[in-house]
């Protein structure tokens, strides 16, 4: 069943959709706000670089895992998936999974690099909006997913449901972040909360099906890893010795 699950997930990623997606496009944020979001996002990225340097010394399998889930975040976050109920396309974030396995700060680095490559070569997002997009997908997505996972663990949910919670939280918080970044910068004379609510609600018809899918993929991958390499989850302290 797990093989079928991955095959179907791959089918979704292979759908030939046009390259349109969710990041905040070039030029939308005024320069002052663009700089502020850069200033807020970059410390997380710097701490992430440090986390990667420390972890790769502790665990030899950390760098290959970084390769797997770094590429996964890049692929997840740039390939649009059509959602018929909304008549539009969007994509998952993938940062919940990378935050659980690699750490939330390292996940911010992955998001930053993915977004930078997409802005440079795929006309996707933008260089001036890179800070805001990193804050949404990298910081809020990663930390939201990470804390949702550990909330699930503290509630004694199974590994799958903890991963499911993390995937859902990472996806929804990414879009909440995008809405917040836009609302703060652009609300003008209107109430910021009203604009925030309008933008976030407009994302929901597309994102609710996708966040459920992202949750199922995140939970499924964690269960798969526990089945084939439980030692990795133990070393990364995702599960305790007795659970493996």
């Amino acid at each position: 069943m797990i093989k079928a699950f991955f095959a179907l997930s791959a089918l979704l990623l292979a759908l030939p959709a046009r390259a349109l997606a969710m990041h905040i496009s070039e030029g939308i944020l005024p320069p002052g706000w663009a700089l502020l979001w850069f200033a807020l996002a970059l410390p997380f990225v710097a701490l992430g670089v440090r986390q990667i340097k420390v972890q790769k010394k502790v665990d030899p399998s950390y760098l290959p895992l970084l390769g797997v889930f770094g590429a996964a975040v890049f692929v997840f976050s740039c390939f649009p998936i059509p959602v018929p109920v909304a008549g539009s396309t969007a994509h998952p974030a993938g940062t919940g999974l990378s935050a659980i396995l690699l750490g939330p700060f390292a996940s911010c680095v992955i998001a930053f690099i993915s977004l930078l490559l997409q802005a440079l070569f795929l006309a996707h997002g933008g260089l001036t909006t890179l800070g805001g997009n990193t804050l949404s997908m990298g910081v809020l997505g990663s930390f939201g997913g990470f804390f949702a996972f550990y909330l699930g663990r503290s509630l004694r949910l199974s590994l799958f449901w903890c991963g499911f919670l993390a995937g859902v939280a990472a996806d929804l918080l990414t879009y909440f972040g995008t809405s917040l970044v836009m609302a703060l910068a652009l609300h003008g004379d209107q109430s910021m909360f009203s604009v925030l609510g309008q933008i976030f609600l407009a994302f929901m018809p597309t994102q609710i099906p996708l966040c459920l899918l992202e949750g199922a993929v995140t939970g499924g991958i964690l269960v798969y890893i526990r089945r084939v390499r439980p030692d990795i989850l133990r070393r990364l302290k995702v599960i305790r010795e007795v659970e493996a």
Binding site: A17, R18, A19, L20, A21, M22, H23, I24, S25, I28, P80, P82, A86, G87, S88, T89, A90, T178, M182, L186, V195, Q198, I199, A202, F203, T206, Q207
Partner: peptide
């Protein structure tokens, strides 16, 4: 056309 969510939400609101 299947518009991206950036087109129907992000760019529209902006």
């Amino acid at each position: 056309k299947w518009p991206g969510i950036d087109e129907i939400v992000v760019e529209k609101f902006a």
